[in-house]
Design a protein around this nucleic acid. Structure first.
Lengths: 336, 336
DNA sequence: CTGAAAGCGCTAACAG
DNA sequence: CTGTTAGCGCTTTCAG
């Protein structure tokens, strides 16, 4: 193993000079900087990650709590996670993986053992039990999600409420008057998951404002459940012509189900969704959707956290405005 | 922050005694041990993770390279990852997440900066470019996967070749003579992914041995692709009655496609799969399958790695024998 | 069985 | 602009 003293000797300078050349925390002459860089390269030096922790307390590690609970679409969760990791790497950080089960204990442990400099928490509930803990910990944290009371926290997310509204408005503009929201699996609502609740709220607000007939149905992530919901909706709301889908797993099966029941998309039924663009594009009938910009949200979360670590003041709540892209799944209501 | 010296003072002993009481590396009197434990509890002491690294080189962190490449089913990959994390925690380790893109550079960086004590690598290719690197690194590693030349490495995986054979044998026993393997997306084979290649080999070996008519088709992870493959298979092999599916994403769509083409499962077509049991059970027609025991394989990987870290000798290759469970999707060939 | 003391590799005052 | 000197919190000799 090559240490900083080896580099120092090789470059004919003191260890601290090497350290400062690396950190840039004090001016170094061009000549010295060059020699140090040269020595580092030829010796293949890399600072021992653990050794910098005791004094300067930066371990260059961020902890990420990934949501792996019933009802959460793994593919979407992974988009967030991957973006967190790649963005963290760009800022020189590695990422420690915490699972949801040991979330509270894990957060406490990571903090108290100083295993990570900061924390990123996903799958936030409106009244998340972890919030008091996060507020009390002496490590900075960022939530991917928007709880009911974000005071004293840093949050970033898509503005799901606006997203729900945006979908309804799009349908209204196309003349639709009877609309439904097919949402996440029931347990997601039971837990009070923030993003799911906010979509419902946005959907309902806009539907009421526009005096639409509307319905909201949770839906399990199986084709069978999608089929059942489609049938139920048509029975209860025969005039249904507009749909908002907030459930990645059953977007395609649901469309299949409605077409199986004799409705053509978009002729008889206009479908909008809130989901990653790639998914909306890959469905048999490309779906008009509000993008769920997972990579962007996750990247922003890391940047906010890195900002906090650097002592910057950062905004408490960052909500990304919804962006709707029209695709083939929506059209004017027949006879509207 | 409470340090080891605080505990020592509180317990009326020296810091080294506290350290030894914690590690058990030298005998401590019952009385002292008790007092130390007591002080640790009341003060809420936790050893600073970074501080133990410099001398004793254990950071209690394992690095995991997760496969997030085209064609790999994220849900299955996550089963592995979660099991790695929970098992690692049981052994007192945390898990650092590395993405595939920076795999080689990441492995090198983690090793040289001593950010992790050991490495776990998933999604192994038969001739994986990372193998020489892993052999040369001075950190222990474990592969989840079975490359062509495992010399000098520690590997653990389901015996996919035997799994492929097992499915064919099951179909043979039920009287089927024309069988097909619907596999992973083409890019998975192009990369030479070990598990995919081995399934093909097992399938082919068994089919040839039994003198069956057989065909192998890769298949993209979309319902449309599944439908296309189903159509093609029936055109090219009108006598087809037995199927092996090794592609989690399209298991259900593929069955739908065949039934759409007029074949009933299992009356006209017997379907077997290699996939996690939960998935096989959750399909509309429960599928006879060889279990892909992700949690078990991942747990074993962690245990092997922890064993290596502890200086134990561990087996080079661990292959889990396939276990086939009959469900509703297979039956005797009509008229056989 | 237990203390005192010497580092681990690095950073950050303190001194030029 | 650079070198010398203390530590960080912990583990592990070295001495009882």
């Amino acid at each position: 193993m090559v240490r900083i003293t080896d580099v120092a000797r090789h470059a004919g300078v003191s260890p601290s000079t090497v350290s400062y050349a690396l950190s840039g925390k004090r001016p170094i002459s061009e000549e010295t900087r060059r020699r140090v860089a040269e020595s580092i390269r030829t010796l293949g030096y890399r600072p021992h990650a653990g050794a910098r922790t005791p004094t300067g307390r930066m371990s260059n590690v961020l902890a990420l709590v990934v949501p792996l609970r019933a009802g959460i679409d793994v593919r979407v969760a992974m988009r967030f996670a991957v973006s967190v990791v790649t963005t963290a790497r760009r800022h020189g950080h590695d990422v420690l993986l915490l699972t949801q089960e040991e979330s509270e204990e894990g957060l406490r442990r990571i903090t108290e053992t100083a295993s990570a400099d900061g924390l990123i928490v996903m799958d936030v509930q409106l009244h998340d039990p972890r919030l008091p803990l996060l507020r009390s910990l002496d490590r900075p944290s960022v939530l991917i999600g928007f709880p009911a009371d974000p005071a004293g926290l840093t949050c970033v997310d898509l503005d799901f409420e606006a997203a729900g509204e945006r979908c309804v408005e799009h349908l209204v503009r196309l003349g639709h008057r009877v609309v439904a929201l097919v949402g996440s699996p029931p347990e997601v609502y039971v837990r009070g998951t923030a993003f799911a609740q906010r979509v419902v709220r946005g959907f309902t607000t806009a539907a009421d404002r526009e005096r639409l007939t509307s319905a909201v149905h949770p839906c399990e992530a199986s084709p069978a459940a999608a089929h059942a919901v489609a049938g139920q909706l048509l029975r209860e709301h025969p005039g249904l012509t507009g749909l908002v889908v907030h459930n990645e797993a059953i977007l395609e099966p649901l469309i299949d189900a409605f077409e199986g029941l004799g409705l053509r998309v978009p002729v008889d039924l206009s479908v909008t969704a809130i989901c990653p663009d790639e998914l909306a594009e890959s469905v048999r009938v490309p779906v008009t959707s509000v993008a769920l910009p997972a990579a962007e949200v996750a990247a922003r979360a890391v940047e906010l956290l890195v900002g906090k670590l650097g002592g910057e003041g950062v905004p408490g709540v960052t909500l990304l405005a919804p962006r709707l892209t029209e695709r083939g799944s929506t059209g004017r209501r027949a006879g509207a």
